[in-house]
């Protein structure tokens, strides 16, 4: 009885040693040499696996970063400049710094501004709706509001506003990965420079119809009147097909175009509220008063 157990233990022990040796030899012989830096780079990357860099996930991007000598064209939109600088230091390579971007929705055709003339009863999907017909308003370019952009966003950064029925971007969460840009069948969403203090000016309309047609369909449509182009001192506004576009690289955020736009289709974001001149004076007086009191 005892000897049976002993034999079994010895036999299994010997077997374990032999197999371990075989495994060791095989492991040595067929060892996959992988650059350690790939793991290192991957640990620096945010791990969002959003594909915003153009590669299938963070691991694939890390591999490419390590293997390619010139990484100046590559960029992780989620990590931004901070992460890219870290990676550049880690890999001893140079990168180009990029302005951080965010998604903007170029349509302001809320229920109030743009009358709904029919109702879509099919699948709740912008792609299906766009493939079926021109949309539930007179504007064939505008937002369909079925939320394809919302469902593709991995970061919960875009949502449909329940009063306007238009998507809105939460710029703190938006990583500019670009999945909503690809998902929108009407090409309404654009990635734009975040700008200093997140201040941005853009034309929130992509209607390419003639002014009268566009205006009839939507109260805040760009009618291509070129008033903004005349007002702009930096030549940053291009008008094509009755539609204005503000070049973010030339725009200096002076807000003159916003003031002259007759339909209000130019949107300004995150600027301090404009104070009418009279109020400013009153406030100054108030300030003076308060100062005198404290003094």
């Amino acid at each position: 009885m005892d000897s049976t157990i002993l034999t079994a233990v010895i036999m299994l022990g010997v077997l374990a040693v032999v197999l371990a040796a075989v495994l060791y030899i095989v492991a040595q012989k067929f060892k996959v040499v992988e650059d350690e830096r790939i793991d290192g780079t991957e640990s620096i990357l945010p791990g969002a696996n959003c594909g915003g860099c153009g590669y299938t996930g963070c691991r694939a991007f890390a591999e490419t970063l390590v293997k390619t000598d010139d990484i100046s064209g590559m960029f992780c939109p989620v990590g931004g400049n901070a992460i890219m600088t870290k990676i550049a230091e880690y890999l001893n390579k140079t990168i180009e710094s990029k302005d951080s971007e965010t998604a903007v929705v170029r349509c302001a055709g809320s229920c109030e501004n743009r009358q709904r003339i029919n109702e879509f009863d099919g699948a709740t999907s912008c792609a299906v709706m766009a493939a079926t017909y021109s949309g539930d308003t007179d504007c064939p370019y505008g937002c369909l509001g079925k939320g394809d952009c919302v469902s593709v966003c991995n970061f919960g950064a875009i949502y449909i506003n329940s009063t306007t029925m238009l998507p809105e971007v939460d710029e703190d969460k938006c990583t500019a990965c670009g999945s909503c840009v690809k998902a929108c069948p009407k090409l309404i969403i654009e990635l734009r420079k975040k700008g200093p203090k997140s201040r941005r000016i853009y034309v929130s309309c992509i209607n390419k119809d003639k002014g009268a047609v566009a205006r009839k369909a939507c109260k805040v449509a760009c009618i291509g009147c070129a008033a903004c182009r005349k007002a702009c001192t930096f030549e940053s506004i291009i008008i094509e097909n009755f539609l204005a576009y503000i070049d973010p690289n030339k725009c200096r955020l002076c807000r003159k175009c916003v003031e002259v736009c007759p339909t209000g289709s130019i949107t300004e974001l995150n600027f301090p509220p404009r104070k009418p001149k009279i109020e400013v004076q009153e406030q100054k007086q108030d300030n003076v008063n308060s100062e005198t009191i404290t003094n």
Binding site: G122, A123, S125, A127, V128, A131, T132
Partner: peptide, 12 residues
Amino acid sequence: LPLVDYIRLGKT
């Protein structure tokens, strides 16, 4: 289910 809606889209 909106079967044809999506199948038509997928087909295209």
